[in-house]
């Protein structure tokens, strides 16, 4: 079974979903993430779904579950990089992801969590 890698940047855990999510993968991810939050004492979780084209209600609920779970362990969750089509699907499914914060891309997500960003050389931003 594929596992989604969890990367650590400073105080933040980054989960970048690059594969088709099966229900099993999602459950494994939730477990792994809970373990990592406890182990690293992370303050924030960023779920990057730039590469996700298709969502269903199960995945929609996953975001909410991860968010509540992380909040219990004092880490804030931000979902970043949602595509327009995905956003429309979730709204049509009636999932507004109440407790989840969102941002347009990874950079803005880091800013939402107040995580320090690598210095940008002038003229390249």
């Amino acid at each position: 079974m594929d596992r989604v890698p969890i990367l650590k940047i400073g105080d933040v855990l980054l989960v970048s979903i690059q594969i088709d999510l099966q229900d099993q993968t999602v459950l494994a991810l939730q477990e792994d993430l809970a373990d990592r939050i406890v182990k690293t004492g992370a303050r924030g979780v960023i779920i990057d779904i730039t590469a996700v084209d298709i969502v269903d209600s199960f995945i929609g609920r996953m975001f909410a579950t991860i968010a509540s779970m992380s909040r219990l362990m004092d880490a804030e969750t931000v979902v970043v990089g949602m595509r327009p089509a995905v956003a429309i699907t979730l709204v049509e499914l009636g999932l507004s992801l109440g407790g989840v914060r969102t941002a347009l891309d990874l950079e803005k997500g880091m800013r939402v969590l107040g995580a320090p960003l690598p210095a940008v050389r002038p003229g390249t931003s």
């Binding site: 979902v79 970043v80 949602m82 327009p84 995905v86 956003a87 429309i88 979730l90 709204v91 049509e92 507004s96 992801l97 914060r101 969102t102 941002a103 347009l104 803005k108 997500g109 939402v112």
Partner: peptide, 12 residues
């Protein structure tokens, strides 16, 4: 409301 929710999901 739907439009606003969809925009929110994208962080706006």
């Amino acid at each position: 409301l739907k439009t606003v929710m969809a925009a929110r999901l994208m962080g706006t």
